[in-house]
């Protein structure tokens, strides 16, 4: 597994750069245009969470190969306030109330695998994967 790229999200420009990197990578891997749009949207949502709720953080993009298929791993890491109750932010309908975890269940559904680790005061790490069909 090699890190393909890593984008600092400090401004809204960072979000666009992360999207751009994600789109190019997924296109290069041969994802369909719908899946490209899904991967990009997932990156966009994760980057926006970093931009809106933490001072700065990093979106990482990696190509992964499990021996049978290729995929793309997105990581979103920040040193922000962390999330008090993960169960709350992963519940559908929560995002519409405009809380911390804007759209996390949505991101989870756009992708194939999703993992979130967060401790209050220590920041959050989200790892999510999309496999090439």
């Amino acid at each position: 597994m090699t890190t393909q790229s890593s984008v600092e999200i400090g401004t809204e420009w960072g979000i666009v750069s992360a999207r751009q990197a994600g789109r190019e990578l997924s296109k290069g891997l041969g994802f369909s245009s719908v899946d490209q749009a899904r991967i990009t949207t997932a990156i966009s949502e994760l980057a926006r969470n970093i931009y809106l709720y933490t001072k700065n953080g990093v979106i990482g993009l990696e190509v992964v190969n499990d021996g049978h298929r290729q995929g793309i791993i997105i990581t979103a890491r920040d040193q922000g306030p962390g999330i008090e109750n993960l169960r709350d932010v992963m519940v559908d309908g929560y995002s519409t109330s405009g809380g911390l975890g804007a759209g996390l269940p949505g991101v989870k559904r756009l992708m194939d695998e999703f993992d979130i680790q967060s401790n209050p005061g220590e920041g959050t790490l989200i790892t999510t994967t999309k496999w090439l069909r």
Binding site: S33, V34, A37, R38, T40, T41, D92, G93, G103, P105, G106, R109, L110
Partner: peptide, 25 residues
Amino acid sequence: SFEILLEVMIGYGMAYREHQILKNK
């Protein structure tokens, strides 16, 4: 132009799936 349309519809797709899940709930 379809890329723009696709991008716009992704949001609807997310809302649609959330709606499905809430309906089951």
